[in-house]
Amino acid sequence: MLERERAQSTVLRGSEDFEGPAGADDLLLRVARGDEAAFGQLYDVVSGSVFGLVRRVVRDQAQSEEVFQEVMLEVWRTAGRFDPGRGKAMTWIMTMTHRRAVDRVRSAQAASIRDERVGALGVTTPFDEVVEQVTERLEQRKVRRCLKFLTELQRESVVLAYYQGHSYPEVAGLLGVPLGTVKTRMRDGLIRLRDCLGVTV
Rank of each mutant, 00 (worst) to 15 (best):
S49V: 03
V159R: 07
A101F: 13
L29G: 01
V118P: 00
Q164C: 03
G48D: 06
A110C: 03
D17R: 13
T95P: 02
E116F: 09
G180Y: 09
T181C: 02
R192V: 14
S64A: 12
Y162A: 05
G34R: 08
L28C: 01
S112K: 11
V130F: 06
R77P: 04
C196Y: 02
L27K: 00
A111F: 03
R194L: 12
V158L: 08
A24M: 13
L190F: 07
S9I: 06
V171M: 00
M1L: 10
D188A: 09
R30Y: 02
A111S: 07
L28V: 08
G52V: 00
D103I: 08
R117S: 13
G122D: 09
T95A: 11
S49T: 03
E170L: 06
F51G: 01
L28I: 03
R56N: 10
Y162E: 09
I191S: 07
Y168S: 00
E36P: 00
K88R: 14
G85T: 03
A111N: 07
E132I: 12
V58E: 04
D128Y: 00
R141Q: 09
T78W: 04
R59G: 00
G165E: 01
L147K: 11
L121H: 11
C196G: 10
H98F: 15
D103M: 11
M96H: 08
D25P: 04
H166N: 14
R141K: 05
T10D: 12
L197W: 00
E129Q: 12
G85H: 10
T135P: 01
S112R: 10
W76H: 05
G20A: 09
L121A: 13
L150I: 00
D35Q: 02
S157A: 15
P21M: 08
V105C: 10
R145S: 13
D44G: 05
G198I: 13
E19A: 07
L138W: 01
A108L: 11
G189D: 12
G48Q: 06
L179T: 05
G173Q: 00
L179G: 05
V177A: 07
A79Y: 07
Y162Q: 15
P126L: 14
E170H: 01
F82Q: 05
D26V: 11
